[in-house]
């Protein structure tokens, strides 16, 4: 019984301390038994008494372990809750929107869509919870963003009070929150139905079809990267939310993530297979424009330019985000 107890305690402790603590505990238990009955064979009852006095192995191990018994510490717990709420709510909203759109597209299959919505919620929300938690655990333990950097350090003095950040340096909480909501909803849409991005064609009987912007066949291949891409951006927004003001460190992270984003966009979107190569033909078939008409040419010009412009806007946006951060972080 004694050995079992010792095993149960040491099992919960770091490898390198186990042997030492085991010997110590054995000595302690024997001392305690000896005190009760003197020398001689101890009955089970005495051993039980002693072990009861020592308390459950879990409590004992906890006392030995001492510090850091949490995955996400008190400093990060608040931002964790905020991000979690945002992600879960916006994910539900995104999925709900998917359901609504699908029901508009094919009303007879509404029950089917509803089942899919429930399945997506049940599988998706715990996953989101897991990812958000993982991200915060990495921040907590990776120490990339130490509490010290965030001004949450315990050793604190009034001298450390930074001037109330210049309003221009401050990051309004609403900014990253809106960005996260936006990213999550887009992610959900990408993940569940990439063909939502397109032109909705209606005829007299209501909805007819969607002419997708994206190349659906190639897209399933891209999907993991796109999702990962958005995930990193959500990380970026979370860091902003945690930090609350522009600092050089934050700008550093932003720069890295944005450059990553630029690279991804460059390879992904500028490739031929990202956009729907049959977009114009699809439009013709959907009866939106007639081939060879003036409308067709205008449409084609818009289509061709708009894909380029989208890329350009995204790139400029990312670069601006970096520059903007730099400017704001430098303000004293």
């Amino acid at each position: 019984m004694i050995e079992r107890y010792i095993y149960a305690v040491t099992q919960k402790l770091p490898q390198n301390q186990r042997d030492d603590i085991a010997i110590e505990l054995r000595g302690l238990i024997e001392d305690m038994i000896e005190e009760r009955i003197g020398s001689g064979e101890a009955s089970n009852q005495v051993v039980e008494e002693v072990l009861l006095e020592l308390g459950s192995p879990r409590e004992m191990a906890n006392k030995y372990r001492g510090t850091k018994k949490y995955l996400i510490g008190p400093e990060l717990y608040d931002p964790f809750l905020i991000v979690l709420k945002i992600v879960l709510i916006s994910m539900s909203v995104g999925l709900g929107a998917v359901f609504v759109i699908q029901s508009i597209i094919t009303p007879p299959e509404i029950l089917d869509h509803f089942v899919k919505l429930i399945v997506a919620l049940v599988t998706g929300l715990p996953q989101a919870l897991g990812w958000v938690a993982l991200m915060f655990v990495l921040v907590e333990y990776g120490g990339g963003l130490k509490t010290k950097d965030l001004g949450l350090d315990k050793a604190w003095s009034p001298a450390m009070l930074t001037a109330i950040p210049d309003p221009k340096r401050r990051i309004k909480r609403s900014e990253p929150i809106i960005a996260i909501i936006f990213y999550v909803i887009i992610m959900v849409w990408f993940a569940f139905s990439s063909d939502f991005f397109g032109i909705y064609v209606f005829n007299d009987n209501g909805f007819k079809e969607v002419v997708p912007f994206l190349n659906e066949e190639a897209f399933s291949m891209y999907m993991p990267f796109v999702l990962l891409f958005f995930a990193t951006f959500i990380v970026k927004e979370c860091l902003k939310l945690i930090s609350g003001k522009w600092t050089m460190k934050l700008v550093g992270y932003t720069t890295v993530i944005n450059i990553l984003g630029i690279v991804v966009i460059f390879f992904l979107i500028t490739g031929d297979s990202f956009w729907n190569p049959e977009f114009m033909n699809d439009l013709v078939q959907a009866g939106v424009v007639a081939e060879g008409s003036e409308g067709y040419q205008i449409g084609e010009a818009i289509w061709r330019n708009s894909t380029r412009i989208t890329v350009a806007i995204l790139l400029i946006g990312l670069v601006w985000d970096i520059i903007d951060g730099w400017i704001k972080a430098r303000k004293k």
């Binding site: 301390q17 603590i21 110590e24 505990l25 302690l28 305690m32 005190e35 006095e53 020592l54 308390g55 409590e59 004992m60 006392k63 030995y64 001492g66």
Partner: peptide, 20 residues
Amino acid sequence: TMLNEKGVPVEPGTLYPLLR
């Protein structure tokens, strides 16, 4: 034992980890 005798009761489960 010493601490208990002197009126400072302490449990072994507290003391051992504290010593470490």
